Amino acid sequence: MADWVEYKLTGADELSAKFRGLAEEMRRKVVTPAAKDAMALVLADAKNRAARIDDPETANFIPKNLAIVERKAIGVEVGAVVMSVGVRKRSKGQGGGNTFYWWWVELGTEKNRAKPFLRPALANNREAVFKEFLNSAKYQLIKLGVN
C-alpha cells in the first residue's frame, strides 16, 4: 500500500511561469533543495511521533533512522523531483540500530494495533509543506539570480 500525495499548486502562477522559462538543469537546481526544505517539516514531525511511540527499553530507536531520500529512479520515470521520508536500513550497532520492525509499528499486525507515525506526519503538514516549498523555491530563484 502506497500513499501518494498529488496537488495542483494554486496561487503559484508567478512561480510556475518562471519555471516554464527555465532550462531543465536550472529547474532541478531550484526544485531539489526546495523539496528537501519542505519535506524537512514532515521529517521533524515523524521523528517526534516515532519518539513517543518507540520503546525506550530497546537498543534500537526508529527516530534515528528516519531520513529524507530523493527517489531519483521514480523521478526520472515521472519527470519530476521525488522526495520521501522513510526509515533507513541499518545494521545492529549503527545509528538507531536495525529497526526492521518499523512497518509493523506503522501498519499494525494481527495482534497489535497500528501506531502510525509517518502517514500522519504527512497528512497533518500538507499545507505547511506546500507553503514551505513555494517559499524555498522563490528563495532558490533569487539565490540563482533568476528574476
Score class of each variant (00 low, 15 high):
Met1Arg: 08
Met1Ala: 04
Asp3Val: 09
Val5Leu: 12
Val5Gly: 06
Val5Pro: 02
Glu6Phe: 07
Thr10Val: 11
Ala12Gly: 03
Ala12Cys: 05
Leu15Ser: 07
Ser16Leu: 12
Ala17Met: 10
Arg20Asp: 13
Arg20His: 10
Gly21Cys: 02
Ala23His: 12
Glu25Ala: 11
Met26Cys: 02
Met26Phe: 01
Val31Trp: 00
Lys36Pro: 06
Met39Val: 10
Ala40Ile: 01
Ala46His: 09
Asn48Glu: 15
Asn48Trp: 09
Ala50Trp: 06
Glu57Asn: 14
Glu57Ser: 13
Thr58Lys: 08
Asn60His: 12
Asn60Cys: 07
Phe61Trp: 15
Lys64Phe: 07
Ile68His: 05
Ala73Lys: 14
Val78Glu: 12
Gly79Glu: 04
Ala80Gly: 10
Val81Tyr: 03
Met83Cys: 08
Met83Val: 10
Ser91Tyr: 09
Ser91Lys: 15
Lys92Met: 12
Lys92Phe: 06
Lys92His: 10
Gly93His: 04
Gly93Thr: 02
Gly96Trp: 00
Gly97Arg: 01
Gly97Cys: 02
Asn98Asp: 14
Trp103Pro: 12
Glu106Ala: 03
Leu107Val: 03
Thr109Arg: 05
Glu110Gln: 14
Glu110Cys: 00
Glu110Trp: 08
Lys111Phe: 08
Arg113Thr: 14
Ala114Asn: 11
Ala114Arg: 13
Phe117Ser: 03
Leu118Phe: 02
Arg126Ile: 15
Arg126Gln: 13
Phe130Leu: 13
Leu134Asp: 04
Asn135Ala: 12
Ser136Asp: 05
Ala137Glu: 03
Lys138Glu: 15
Leu141Cys: 05
Leu144Gln: 04
Gly145Asp: 00
Val146Phe: 05
Asn147Cys: 02
